[in-house]
Design a protein around this nucleic acid. Structure first.
Lengths: 219, 219
DNA sequence: GAAGTGAAGTTTGTATACTATGAGCACCCC
DNA sequence: GGGGTGCTCATAGTATACAAACTTCACTTC
């Protein structure tokens, strides 16, 4: 029997699933910044015990999305202009180069996957999926994946998640969807062609434009 | 009554303390790479329950020091040349500039704290303290702290921790202690003077030299 | 002897239960 | 009436208990 099936199937633990759900809720602003997070409340809402809730929160804490005051609980970290600037600064340092390197060592399969991610992203945008930030991240990461080491992936994931939070909070999506779509198309074409210098420039501009828009929204 | 006491005293939870201890053990190689980590074993060793053990491990997982195979347990992530290159590459991108910015906006107090960290580091080196990697990280971070945003701090901490792991594993400390001491002195002098360009150059060289030594150790 | 099958023993992941700390409020003293 | 003191309640953090999954290994079958 052949093995075309290569997706690894594993049982995801409750805490692991909850981690994704809570992260998405925070990114969507469903729990306001600075707001306390009641472990019992979440446990009751999902009809589970506190143990997996705490594990998910601990992971989010390590991601910087919530902070923990000992014996007082977890709080959603407030959004600050300083953090926004910080995150985009780091992205500008890391992501353009990493993307260019990814293009250079991308295999046929990597290219397919990146294109699939772009399609999914465009579909999500087209149907106004509120989770399209997720697909945006996946696309950006797919461009980096072929060459990047595990730490670069991890750091960029962290940065993109936080960036996503600011974008979702301060900006009306439809305002940037069209432009972003255009830029993503250009990026993808250039990435497939493997033009290192050009990709770096495009990606830098792509991130910078988002940052400029964000600064505008922050007045 | 005056308040010269400004260190904030908080009760550290068991899981929080354990996080530090386990991280240090992994950095020291006390648990070999790829080795499984038995939750019950650790719980028994510290005479606590599994709950805080799991929380500490989840944090370490988020740091990339251990990985989790569902229903099979936590494993110490293996050291790879690729990750080492990756981590140092990122440090070279971020840390020199961040250190220079730190120097520019350092207050008198920041300077005092940085110098105190350097002293502690030198003391630790002098007495061959096995935990001197910790003080090294604290010193490097103290140089960055004055200007850096929270995310930069977080990312650099992550990178320095991982870098530390490779340095401790592959290199005999005494071989580099002397050189590092010298370089730290130079860095500190330059940092206090606030010469941006020069600091960047020195820090870049400092990190690069460590990377070169590491490459040598890796054959 | 190699490969498949099944039962016993580990170990994980989560529920439940308990302790103790912090917040909030009423009361008291001046 | 303002500030201190103790009580009550809510919540965090951890221990204990347990079900489900994985591993191991002996046993069977060809």
């Amino acid at each position: 029997m052949s093995t075309p099936q290569k997706t690894r199937l594993v049982s995801r633990s409750i805490s692991d699933q909850l981690y994704d759900v809570l992260r998405e809720q925070i990114l969507n602003g469903e729990v306001g910044e600075g707001e306390p997070i009641r472990q019992d409340g979440i446990a009751a809402a999902f009809e589970i015990s506190k143990i997996p809730v705490r594990e998910a929160l601990v992971r989010l804490q390590q991601d910087g999305l919530v902070s923990l005051h000992p014996k007082r609980g977890f709080f959603v970290t407030p959004l600050t202009r300083k953090e926004a600037e910080d995150v985009f600064h780091l992205r500008l340092l890391i992501e353009p180069e990493a993307t260019a390197l990814g293009a250079q060592s991308a295999t046929e399969e990597d290219a397919k996957k990146a294109q699939a991610c772009l399609e999914e992203l465009e579909n999500a945008v087209a149907r106004q999926d509120p989770r399209r930030g997720v697909y945006n991240r996946l696309f950006h990461l797919a461009l980096v994946q072929p060459a990047a080491g595990p730490t670069t992936i991890h750091v960029l994931t962290l940065l993109n998640v936080t960036a996503d939070r600011y974008v979702r909070f301060h900006m009306h999506m439809q305002d940037i969807d069209t432009r972003a779509n255009q830029e993503h198309r250009e990026l993808m074409a250039c990435w497939l062609a493997g033009n290192k210098r050009e990709i770096e420039k495009l990606m830098r501009k792509h991130i910078q434009t988002t940052l400029d828009d964000l600064r505008g929204a922050l007045k």
